[in-house]
Design a protein around this nucleic acid. Structure first.
Length: 545
RNA sequence: GCCCAAGUGGCUCAGGGGUAGAGCACGUCCUUGGUAAGGACGAGGACACGGGUUCAAUUCCCGUCUUGGGCUCCA
């Protein structure tokens, strides 16, 4: 449920945010205030502590002060003024971030500014609030954690200290949330990945680089085998391409410079009497596939031409973004590029959506949403190609989504640098949304690579390219499956398909024979011949799913 | 990259200026005929790495690396 749907809860969280700010100012008088909005689970408030540092251990003190403020039954008083009055008030309060915010709002046409005052605390705020702090005596809140957050969400700005809090109407609701969170943590893919020997990492290899253990590799291979069959069925042709290429390729594709920051630095090969050659680890498979398309003259009769590969890519993601299997620096993507005529777009898009549906049915996945990721108005130079091309792609995707009756929302500025896309969004157990699959439309690459086909009149034409990755990367997809299944994979892709527990040693020989027979049928089978008790063996094998 | 926190046997964690502890896992032996923990014994540790302070550092300080939660970014 979105917090805005519940006015009472919204008021509670909003009011508690003010009380948090008031309490922090009491303990740290020099702290400057940023934003402090309600969230889906509570609220947060951003502070600039200057040279001081807020530690987790300070949160208990702040909580105590907040409770005291609640007991004081301070009433929330609203009053309004114009921009000059607002700036004067905020300057008087020595709140530079608030002043900046008021000025930004004024630039966007806001004329009236409302303030809420409770006790000694004043804040620029739209409200609404509870009548007085005493109304919060039954509300349950907990200061949860501290995080950094850039002022106005821009990494060029100063980083403020954000205090996240949980807040609910009643104690029971908060306890309920904490319980659910604890349960979710039990199914966290990082935890299960370790317990079930799916993957490991090692300092000697490096950040975000995954070592897949035998169990994880079985899951990868089964998924890949299934994907190969499905792609065969849907008319894809598989290709295999190298994981590195010369810098010239990525200049042509515009990954350099558009994507340079996300690429590992080049390997430079120097040979006597020759110019040094730069090789890059590839961040995407697309350019390689385009070159296969371009290896000879193509006829319209060949289209749509679908090249598929589980391609391994390397991206130098910022260190702080890395997280378990969800964000890594070496990933293997369920990729394909489809070269087609403009007339074929809608049919092909439908076929892709059908393929996605079939995949998700097999994995019994649900609860995802569609995002139409467009260029948006900001940061236009990040996106390559001319306006007409973008408008065309964005319109085309919206049209076909509407025709298919697929519900979606629009993500401004979420497009790939070479074109708009449709993303399939899943929420992980902690409620964080991640893109699992994408379908991208690309007018740019055919131009960059000079890709052509000969139409029925013998004329050269630009093909259109669709990029699609229904099963995401092995890394991200398996992290979702781990949490989704709680580690208990469907038999077809489970690391161990049959586990036998003989009731005593006399049965071991028979169990071994049976194991051999199943093994010969290509079934992954284990016999527990350990010296443990029968009950213990049942427990062990159950825990291992 | 930035903010905060953390790194102790394979795992989960306790400890603490005088060179280490538990449970689980592991090994050996005994035990186990019916659906979630049988018992005994044993082996395992440059306390992430590098520097500093100190008579003495795993413990305090600094740096690096890695991990986690966020921010920015993204499959």
């Amino acid at each position: 449920m979105e917090v805005a749907d519940n006015p009472t809860l919204y008021k509670i969280r909003h009011s508690l945010a003010h009380i948090l700010a008031q309490a922090v100012k009491q303990k740290f008088p020099e702290a400057k205030l940023g934003f402090g909005p309600p969230t889906d689970t509570g609220f947060f408030y951003d502070f600039d502590f200057g040279s001081e540092v807020l530690n987790e251990s300070d949160l208990k003190d702040v909580e105590k002060i907040m409770k005291k403020i609640i007991r004081q039954r301070q009433s929330f008083e609203k009053n309004e003024c114009d921009i000059d009055g607002a700036v004067a008030k905020l300057q008087d309060a020595n709140e530079p971030y608030k002043v900046e915010n008021a000025q930004n709002l004024a630039e966007r046409g806001v004329e009236s500014f409302s303030f809420y005052e409770n006790g000694p605390f004043l804040d620029l705020c739209e409200g609404p609030h509870v009548e007085n702090t005493g109304d919060l005596k039954d509300a349950a809140f907990k200061l949860d954690r501290i995080a950094g957050a850039y002022w106005l969400g821009d990494e060029k700005n100063k980083m403020l200290t954000r205090v996240y809090a949980l807040a609910y109407e009643k104690r029971a609701d908060l306890d309920d949330y904490l319980k659910r969170r604890q349960l979710a943590q039990k199914f966290d893919h990082k935890k299960l990945g370790k317990e079930l020997d799916i993957y490991t990492q090692n300092d000697l290899i490096g950040k975000g680089l995954i070592l897949w253990m035998p169990n994880g590799t079985i899951i990868r291979n089964e998924i890949e085998k299934y994907a190969c069959e499905m792609e065969f069925k849907y008319g894809y042709k598989r290709v295999s391409t190298p994981q590195i290429a010369k810098s010239d390729l990525y200049k042509k594709s515009q990954h350099l410079p558009a994507y340079r920051e996300s690429m590992f630095p080049p390997m430079v090969v120097e040979e006597e009497g020759a110019e040094p050659t730069e090789y890059y680890l590839r961040p995407m498979n697309c350019p390689h596939h385009h070159l296969i398309f371009d290896s000879r003259v193509r006829s319209y009769r060949e289209l749509p031409l679908r090249y598929a590969e589980y391609g391994t890519n390397y991206r130098y993601e910022q260190s702080g973004e890395l997280s378990g299997l969800i964000r890594v620096r070496c990933m293997t993507l369920n990729d394909a590029h489809i070269y087609l005529t403009h007339d074929q777009f809608k049919d092909e898009f439908r076929s892709i959506m059908k393929l996605y549906q079939e995949f998700y049915d097999t994995f019994k996945l649900s609860g995802y949403s569609f995002r139409l990721s467009i260029r948006g108005d900001d940061n236009k130079d990040k996106f390559k190609g001319d306006d007409a091309m973008w408008t065309r792609g964005e319109t085309l995707l919206a049209e076909v989504m509407d025709e298919l009756g697929v519900e979606y929302y629009v993500g401004e500025g979420e497009a790939a640098f070479y074109g708009p896309k449709v993303d399939i969004q899943f929420k992980n157990l902690m409620g964080r949304e991640e893109t699992v699959s994408t379908i991208q439309v690309d007018y740019l690459s055919p131009i960059n690579f000079g890709l052509k086909y000969i139409d029925e009149h013998g004329n050269e034409q630009d093909p259109l390219i669709l990029h699609r990755a229904p099963l995401s990367t092995h890394e991200r997809f398996i992290s979702f499956l781990l949490e989704y299944y709680g580690g208990a994979f469907p038999t077809w892709c489970a690391p161990v398909q049959v586990a036998m527990i003989p009731v005593n040693e006399n049965c071991h020989q028979f169990a071994d024979e049976l194991k051999q027979r199943l093994h010969n049928e290509m079934i992954r089978v284990e016999v527990d011949t350990s010296a443990n008790s029968f009950n213990k063996k049942i427990r062990t094998n159950t825990v291992r799913k």
